[in-house]
Design a protein around this nucleic acid. Structure first.
Lengths: 166, 166
DNA sequence: TGCTATATTGTTATATTATAACGTAACATC
DNA sequence: GATGTTACGTTATAATATAACAATATAGCA
């Protein structure tokens, strides 16, 4: 049985990607309805594209995908949608890639960690409380109030290690 | 007694900054001599500027500082020096700021963590083995081979919390 | 319903960060 | 001192992101 979520671990080649996109969109719609947020057609489409890309994707890639389907779009078009999706926890920004990826746990205020494969470009989203607590401990020792955490680990995923030549 | 190192914790206002710059430069010179690396005048000056700025500083800021002192410089001038300094562990790049900061432990191959104050702009460099080991454990569970870690925590430092209005 | 305030999107221009490509100068090694 | 290599100069451009203002759509209310 395949998970309908993308990135709690690295997805296998045979996972049902259409289902995971559909599921994520459904969750987002439900979440926005609950919260009284306007998931407009544009925002919905941007979120769908992000999930459909199936890995962290750049703003200008998304922009090109939007214009290729006939929509009038300029950089602010995409950045404003990204801002909305970020603010409401529907996507994450991967700082080290300048790229955006769907969030696996929309609604939960969580600090995610990312493991990013340099071979296939996919990213696994973790939410390891242990990392959080170690950071919190260090912060306490420094007298530092944490606002935002960025934990991104680059390397090679298990699938790519086995693959002959990706 | 004031530490001659900048960022094992957030520096106090009264710390001897000139000494910490001088010390860092001396360490870099020694290290490059040992390793047979050419710390050219340009690279030396860039490293000095980075330390003198006393907090993460952008490439174009450095560029401006160079040109203001009469040197001919264009973006590649600065980026090439930054590349040299990064490759040889003399500075770090703070991904979330697109900025560069002197390394406290040149020569040691270490994965640093940064605590970045959003009020004063200063960054503390930690090297917490515990964070490393937790990341390593997660990586092992995923079958992931780690190449590079990025751990950056933004927030407010102890000094700025006490300050009335920075 | 129609009015009005607000939120969203369109549009143009520009800021910020970084690299490509190619030529010249310095240096090092023989 | 000829030659290969490394570093630097120079021009152009790529990639990412935001400012500023106009037009449109939506929501809430009279």
């Amino acid at each position: 049985m395949n998970s309908s979520k993308r990135s709690e671990q690295f997805p296998t080649a045979d996972h049902d990607h259409q289902t995971c996109v559909t599921h994520a969109l459904q969750e987002a719609e439900d979440f926005c309805l609950q919260q009284g947020l306007r998931l407009t057609e544009l925002r919905h489409r941007v979120l769908e594209l992000i999930w459909a890309n199936h890995q962290p994707v750049g703003a200008y890639d998304l922009l090109e995908q939007l214009t290729h389907e006939g929509r009038k779009a300029a950089p602010p078009t995409i950045y404003r949608s990204l801002d909305f999706l970020l603010e409401n926890g529907l996507i994450h920004r991967i700082t080290s890639l300048n790229a955006y990826v769907g969030c696996n746990h929309p609604g939960l205020n969580h600090a995610a960690q990312f493991f990013i494969c340099e071979a296939c470009g996919q990213a696994a989203e973790l939410d390891d409380a242990k990392i959080e607590s170690v950071i919190a401990r260090d912060a306490k020792r420094l007298g530092f109030t944490v606002e935002k955490r960025t934990v991104e680990v680059a390397g090679i995923c298990a699938h790519c290690k086995l693959r002959p030549n990706p």
